[in-house]
C-alpha cells in the first residue's frame, strides 16, 4: 500500500515544530552552527577567489569565475538542505547499533522518511537563506543568465534535493550490511568533498563514475550546469529521470536492509 503524499507533509510539519522546540534549548549552539556554516562557505569562496586571482585568464576545466559563483551557490544550497532536514543521518550508525530504529518500525509510514527527516534544523534553514542569497548573487552576476532562465531554478533544486535525500538513504541502507563501520558518515564526508568541486576537474573515469554510478554529480555539478547552460536539453531530461530512478532504488535498498535489522545489532 503506498503512503499518501499528505502523510509526508504532516510528518514534516511536526518534525519542523519539534526542531524549533529542541533548538530553543541550545540558543548558543544555534548561533554557532549558523556561524560555522558561514565560515564553511567563506573558506570555499576565499579559496576559489585566490585560485582565480592567480592569473586573469584561468578556468577550472572550462568553469569560469562567473560559472563557479553559481556552482558554489548551488553546492551551498544543497548542503543547507542536508543540514536542515537530513542531519539525523550522522547518527544512523550509532542508532542502528543501539537498536533505536525500533520506534520507527512501529510508526505508520516508511522508515526511510520518518527516520531520515526527523531532525529538522532551524539553523540549517537560516543557512539556507544565506546559501540562496549567494546563489542569487551568482545568478545576477553571471553574464549569460537572464530572467528567462529562472524557471530552471526549481528544476535544479528538485534534482539536487532528491539526489541528496536518496544518497543519504542509500548510504544508511548500506550500513545494515556493515554495522559499526560508520560507512554512511564516512562516505557522506567523502562525497561532499568530491561534489563541492565541478566534476570536470577529475579524470574522465572518476567523473563518469560520479555522474552515472553514484550520481553525486546531481548535488551541484548538474544543477549548476543547468543554470549556466552547460548541459543539453536531452541530457537534462534524461539525468532528471535517472535521479528519480536512483531515489526509488535507494528506498528499496533501505527497505531490504530493514529486514536484516535485529534491534540491538552489536
Amino acid at each position: 500500500m503506498s503512503t499518501p503524499f499528505n502523510f509526508y507533509v504532516r510528518v514534516a510539519r511536526q518534525y519542523t515544530r519539534i526542531g524549533w522546540v529542541r533548538k530553543s534549548q541550545f540558543r548558543w549552539e544555534f548561533v554557532n552552527q549558523v556561524v560555522m556554516d558561514c565560515l564553511y562557505y567563506l573558506s570555499f569562496l576565499l579559496t576559489f577567489q585566490i585560485l582565480y586571482g592567480l592569473r586573469d585568464d584561468l578556468t577550472l576545466a572550462g568553469w569560469t569565475r562567473d560559472d563557479i559563483r553559481v556552482f558554489l551557490g548551488m553546492a551551498f544550497v544543497t548542503d543547507a538542505f542536508m543540514m536542515t532536514w537530513l542531519g539525523q543521518s550522522w547518527h544512523f550508525g550509532d542508532d542502528l547499533k543501539a537498536g533505536n530504529l525500533d520506534a520507527f518500525r512501529l510508526r505508520p509510514g516508511p522508515v526511510w522518511f520518518t527516520y531520515s527527516f526527523q531532525r529538522f534544523s532551524p539553523e540549517g534553514l537560516t543557512n539556507m537563506l544565506v546559501a540562496v542569497g549567494l546563489l542569487t548573487y551568482g545568478l545576477v552576476r553571471h553574464p549569460a543568465i537572464g530572467a528567462a532562465d529562472l524557471w530552471l531554478v526549481p528544476l535544479a533544486f528538485a534534482v539536487a534535493f532528491t539526489a541528496q535525500a536518496a544518497l543519504v538513504v542509500l548510504l544508511q541502507g548500506l550500513e545494515f550490511w556493515a554495522v559499526n563501520a560508520d560507512l554512511s558518515r564516512f562516505f557522506s564526508q567523502i562525497f561532499t568533498q568530491i561534489s563541492d568541486r565541478p566534476l570536470d576537474v577529475y579524470p574522465r573515469g572518476v567523473k563518469r563514475f560520479f555522474i552515472w554510478a553514484v550520481p553525486i554529480g546531481a548535488l551541484a555539478w548538474f544543477p549548476a550546469g543547468v543554470l549556466v547552460g552547460r548541459h543539453g536539453a536531452l541530457f537534462v531530461l534524461g539525468y532528471a529521470c535517472l535521479i528519480a530512478l536512483f531515489a526509488v532504488a535507494a528506498g528499496r535498498l533501505f527497505a531490504r536492509g530493514m529486514r536484516r535489522y535485529e534491534s540491538a545489532m552489536s
Binding site: L54, T59, L60, Q189, R197, D200
Partner: peptide, 18 residues
Amino acid sequence: LVEPLVMLCVFWALYRSA
C-alpha cells in the same frame, strides 16, 4: 586521504588552463 586528492585534481585543471 580524499581532500588532498581532490585538491590535486583542482590544481591539475587550473594549471592545464594556465
